[in-house]
Design a protein around this nucleic acid. Structure first.
Ligand SMILES: NC(=O)c1ccc[n+]([C@@H]2O[C@H](COP(=O)([O-])OP(=O)(O)OC[C@H]3O[C@@H](n4cnc5c(N)ncnc54)[C@H](O)[C@@H]3O)[C@@H](O)[C@H]2O)c1
Ligand SMILES: NC(=O)c1ccc[n+]([C@@H]2O[C@H](COP(=O)([O-])OP(=O)(O)OC[C@H]3O[C@@H](n4cnc5c(N)ncnc54)[C@H](O)[C@@H]3O)[C@@H](O)[C@H]2O)c1
Lengths: 204, 204
DNA sequence: TTTATATTGTGAATATTGTCACAATAAATT
DNA sequence: AATTTATTGTGACAATATTCACAATATAAA
């Protein structure tokens, strides 16, 4: 299995490359990307070699070619469909997030137990949990975002897993228990902040 | 410098330990935490040893002792103060987030260029960027959260760095450029989702 | 008390990840 | 055309992280 550091780097490269492309560049040298991203030039070349990106000796790499290879690696030439559970503070903010469209990510539907929230919002329909299974099957949903309070996160998670979801992005401050074949990524703002503060202190 | 994987694991342990404590446990074995978090028992023991947590042979570890050591590692016995720039969708959601209080994290002030947003919101005062330097100094702010659109993220970042901020939690989809002594952690929902979808596909 | 059992703590072995150094090579310059 | 220069691509090496294996040891059971 490929390391998560490697896949994260690819996504970091993509961000920088899109930026460089926007300001008019067509080609890049590994050292330039190193300057942009903070990774070493040698590591970047190794990574590119791993996804079969060839440069021209002394000529650098074509941005288009790299971006294509990264997209290909993630298999995101077609739109990936996801659902969102919990339309509270953070759920609504995510539902309103426009960048997903550029990224070929689409939130097809949202769910909430609160009937007051069960109506279309920001162009995304909000259903009761009852509709969950049907929608996951019909739309071939690839992942679920959990944005419910901590105490109901595991229940929601079990439900999604039961409906066949294999990837979960979890905002609740809980270590979810899932079968081996399900991948969970936790986004914990508190932990991230702690982490930042810890490093900031080192650098004082 | 300690690896970021190590510090992340500590925060993961904490989450599980708090949960186990809540359901009534006082002691844990490394294997139990392994089951909760997915890390191997040996690794957990090594990590504990690294932060000077001693268990009792055959008796396991005391949850209190571990939690104390983790808190101590992060130096969060006192409240850490942070600021938030950008009170749009995501910024407001963060400002409303109550969990920070339990975690001894406090958002002391927020900033926004939009005058309409410059009033107290959810008990956090919202200022114009002009007040930024003063507040960072007066309150001894330890980190900044950036939640502004991508095109102004670097500008805001430069400003914070100029005011002495050494740690940044960045939500904008941009690889920020900072001096070496500043630590940046990027939270990219699109990237996280991509990552989840990638792994989900592997497990189909 | 003796024996069996379960768990920690850690050195050694292994695996993984990243860096270094440089040959290969294409482009630019003279 | 010959020479210089800059960059890729990669094998060898170094560093780091993780697992393995088991001695040390405390508790429980007989
Ligand atoms: N607000 C933030 O900035 C923030 C940041 C990080 C993490 N989080 C975490 O994200 C989660 C949501 O936070 P929030 O501030 O949006 O909370 P919130 O209370 O505003 O929203 C939670 C939503 O989930 C719904 N819900 C509750 N139980 C449900 C269930 N069983 N099935 C479906 N829907 C259910 C509620 O009706 C509500 O709309 C929490 O776990 C929180 O800790 C929030
Ligand atoms: N909404 C999401 O779920 C989400 C998720 C991930 C990342 N993001 C990123 O977070 C950032 C904010 O997203 P959002 O949806 O909250 O956007 P938004 O447009 O709702 O909010 C941005 C806020 O920043 C303020 N602002 C703009 N320029 C500023 C400046 N120079 N100084 C101070 N304040 C300034 C604006 O007045 C506005 O209030 C974006 O970069 C976005 O890509 C958003």
């Amino acid at each position: 299995m490929s390391s998560t550091e490697f896949t994260k780097r690819l996504l970091t490269y993509r961000l920088s490359l899109l930026h460089l492309q926007e300001i008019g560049l067509n080609d890049v040298y590994s050292h330039l990307i190193a300057g942009e991203t903070g990774f070493s030039a040698a590591l970047i070349r190794k990574d590119f070699s791993r996804i079969n990106v060839k440069g021209k000796r002394r000529g650098g790499y074509e941005i288009d070619v790299i971006l294509q290879a990264i997209n290909n690696y993630f298999g995101d030439d077609k739109v990936s469909k996801v659902i969102l559970v919990g339309m509270g503070n953070i759920g609504s903010a995510i539902a309103r997030y426009k960048d997903f469209q550029n990224q070929k990510l689409r939130i097809v539907a949202a769910f909430d137990i609160d009937p007051a929230k069960q109506r279309k919002k920001f162009s995304i329909p909000v259903y009761s949990m009852g509709k969950c299974q049907e929608i996951i099957y019909c739309y071939e949903i690839e992942a679920g975002i959990i944005a419910v309070p901590a105490f109901s996160a595991q229940t929601v998670c079990d439900r999604l897993v039961y409906c066949g979801i294999k990837g979960i992005l979890n905002f609740a401050p809980v270590n979810l228990k899932v079968p081996e074949e399900v991948y969970v990524s936790n986004v914990s703002l508190s932990n991230e902040l702690r982490h930042v503060i810890y490093h900031a202190k080192q650098n004082k």
